[in-house]
Design a protein around this nucleic acid. Structure first.
Lengths: 192, 192
DNA sequence: CCGAGATATTTTAGGCTTAAAACATCGGCA
DNA sequence: TGCCGATGTTTTAAGCCTAAAATATCTCGG
């Protein structure tokens, strides 16, 4: 460690030898979060002002719209990426409002199936039309090529995150089933 | 629908004459939201598991860490992009936990100034180190060039969204003050 | 000095969110 | 048949979040 060459170590070498810092990734994450929050808050405000509906309710209706045969609560929670217990009250309020109907499955009495009523379907159609326009408006300064590029890069990001989710969970002794699942091994070859 | 000229309208014309559809923008928005949610949920879970801290608390401490002289509640709410009333309870809990201290400004008794205690500063330092590593881990499959590219494109997106925020508020008869404001948005200059 | 607005924060009412525990039901199996 | 572990949903406790109203204080013109 008293190597006389030490005095010749320049900035570049230092960068190579020190644990690499990851400020670039951190900045990217913060920017991603900012973009999402900006859009989300604006859409939330407009949904409220024009339709008196909250974002979670709109999201729930959107999922059901895409599945005309209805969905179970578990399917909903997985697609909306919210916790299971969350849906109970959310669905309840929309049932009360007449926007959707809920019925216990005949096959499996644990399962609750939910679908839009025709009232809910019509209400959603009107909101979805506006919503699409709002997004287009907010994104107006992006060229078609920009959109395609971000889609691709975010696709890569999504893959990276998914591949590394749960990787840190070996810290404690909890069960790790991910290695038994297709395509999401924590050690799935990553080289950079 | 039964316009006799309809038979002569080709696909290109239809595209030009119909309200353009914006499915590409919509897909991009959904992907953006997915990426953010994936990262956010994972970071939230790790902060909880390793430090027993919530994401909003971490965010609050991060803002204060960047401002060693402390911040007012208004500055905090603007930087964190959350509503003002939200902060009262959030700050209160962290004060109780000894992580930060709150004092009424001597200059202006409406103003509350908040800063990290040395305990809070140390706690945050440990968390921030881990946090940076987690983000790097989740983003590991992105090359340096990818990161730079997404940063640029998201910068453009951010600009687009900011430029169009509030533009849709003239729809109904409600008061629109935005045109009388110097420039809306959290980053606009403040005077105190 | 006074009062009208402006500004900073807190309070209120309602809703969203999670993790974890509780409850209900199902399917397999001895 | 009777139990046991897995699965689907609800409940609970705590906290986060917003919009809007209420409160407190400041600034400034008269």
């Amino acid at each position: 460690m008293d190597d006389p060459n030490a005095m010749f170590i320049d900035a570049e070498t230092v960068v190579l030898e020190r644990p690499r810092d990851h400020k670039a990734e951190l900045r990217l994450w913060l920017r991603l979060l900012t973009c999402t929050t900006l859009v989300e808050d604006e859409i939330r405000a407009r949904l409220r002002a024009d339709f008196d509906v909250t974002l979670p309710r709109f999201d729930l209706m959107a999922q059901l719209h895409k599945a005309p045969d209805g969905l179970t609560l578990s399917q909903l929670s997985s697609r909306m990426m919210v916790s299971n217990g969350n849906l109970t009250a959310l669905v309840e309020r929309l049932v009360e409002a007449g926007q959707l109907e809920r019925r216990v499955s005949a096959m499996d009495r644990r399962v609750v199936n939910v679908r839009l009523t025709s009232v809910g379907e019509r209400a959603f159609a009107a909101m979805a039309l506006q919503h699409e326009g709002w997004i287009a408006e907010l994104f107006a300064q992006l060229e078609d090529a920009d959109i395609e590029q971000i889609m691709t890069l975010l696709g890569k990001l999504k893959g990276s995150v998914r591949a590394n989710i749960g990787a840190g969970q070996k810290r404690d002794g909890k069960l790790d089933l991910s290695s038994t699942m297709p395509s999401s091994g924590p050690e799935s070859g990553h080289h950079s």
